[in-house]
Every structure is written in C-alpha cells, then in structure tokens.
Design a binder for these strands. Structure first.
Length: 175
DNA sequence: GCCAACGTTGGC
DNA sequence: GCCAACGTTGGC
C-alpha cells in the first residue's frame, strides 16, 4: 500500500512534519465495560496493545500521526458519564495489528493481507488519571473546544487534539 | 460509478 | 432502547 496523502484536508496538521522534540496530542475512545482506564493502569507495565481499529480515518491517525512519547487522552464512551478520565502515552509506534489476521479474533478481517497490512496497532501506557473526569457535556459547552474532532466527528475512535485543546481540558480537570 | 441496504458507533 | 450519522457492501 502506498502511504496515504495527508498533506491536505482539515486534519493535515496531525500529520505535518514536526519540529525537534515536538510532542503531539491525541484522544482514544474505549467503552469502560470492555476496557477502562483503570484496566490500563492495572495492566502489566500499565501498557496495552491498542488494536482492533477498523476505520480508515482512525487508522491513519494511529499509523501516520502517533509517535512514541505523544500524549493521549483516554475517553470513556457509551458510559455514564461519557468523559475523558486519564492520560496515556504512546509507548510503541504503529505495527501491524495482529488481531486482523487472527481467525479466532472478533476483529479478524478476512480481507487483510499480512504481507501488506491494512490495520495497525500501537501500544499505549497509562500516565495519570485526571484530577476529575471532564465530561462530553462540559466539552461541548466550552466554545474553545467547538472544533475538537471529538465533537465534530462523533464516531471517530482515534482523533487528534491540538495543544490548545489539550491545555484547556487539563485546566478544566483541575477545577 | 451510483445508490439502496445494511451494519456499527455512540450520544441521548 | 432508540436512532442519527456514517462507513461499507453489493446489485445494477
């Protein structure tokens, strides 16, 4: 597969070349009944394989956007409340998602080709819980966050967060 | 290549 | 539990 062209479009900044030591910010969603932030903290080395992503936009952010050391908001979806609850970091950059070629796995993709992988995983590691969860309701009420991918593209499970958005949410969690 | 049918995500 | 949004599939 040829690399996707990310040079144009609304989210191109997520893929743009980086200045030295630049860190970027992301958000991943998980249903806490399936895998919660507490589950991540309880995992060996507080790290897990973030796999099963089967949406091309999410895949592109995961594969071509995320770099080791980037910070990641951990969001609980389909829960009460829906909220960002913690911070993780990218512990390992994208590698072929082993669940895509595992016939026994629920996320098995019969069309995937292990020689030319379609789907990728990263490893993420827990960094810290937020002082308090920041709910989707609060995020939607904050005009400074109106352009967040979380708000604009409701179903995207991996999305970019701008430094300004990151700081705003961290500040909200401290009050 | 269009688009109807269908499946999934995830807020409400 | 409902359903809107949206991605995917398949008939034509």
């Amino acid at each position: 597969m040829t690399p996707a062209d990310h040079s144009e479009g609304k989210w191109a900044a997520a893929f743009a070349p980086r200045s030295p030591n630049e860190k970027r910010y992301w958000l991943v969603k998980s249903e806490p009944d399936v895998f919660s932030f507490d589950d991540l903290r309880a995992a060996p080395k507080q790290t897990t394989q973030w796999d099963g992503i089967r949406n091309f936009a999410a895949r592109n952010f995961l594969k071509d956007g995320m770099k080791r050391g980037d910070r990641v908001f951990f969001y609980h979806s389909s829960s009460n409340p829906q909220a960002i609850v913690g911070i993780a970091e990218v512990a390992r950059e994208a590698y072929p998602d082993p669940t895509a070629t595992d016939r026994k796995h629920a996320a098995f993709d019969p069309k995937s080709d292990s020689a030319h992988p379609t789907w990728y995983a990263v490893d993420i590691k827990a960094v810290a819980s937020l002082p308090r969860p920041v709910t989707l309701t609060e995020i939607k009420a904050n005009k400074a966050l109106a352009d967040m991918a979380l708000v604009r593209i409701g179903r995207l499970s991996v999305s970019p967060v701008t430094p300004r958005e990151w700081e705003a949410i961290v500040a909200m969690a401290e009050h």
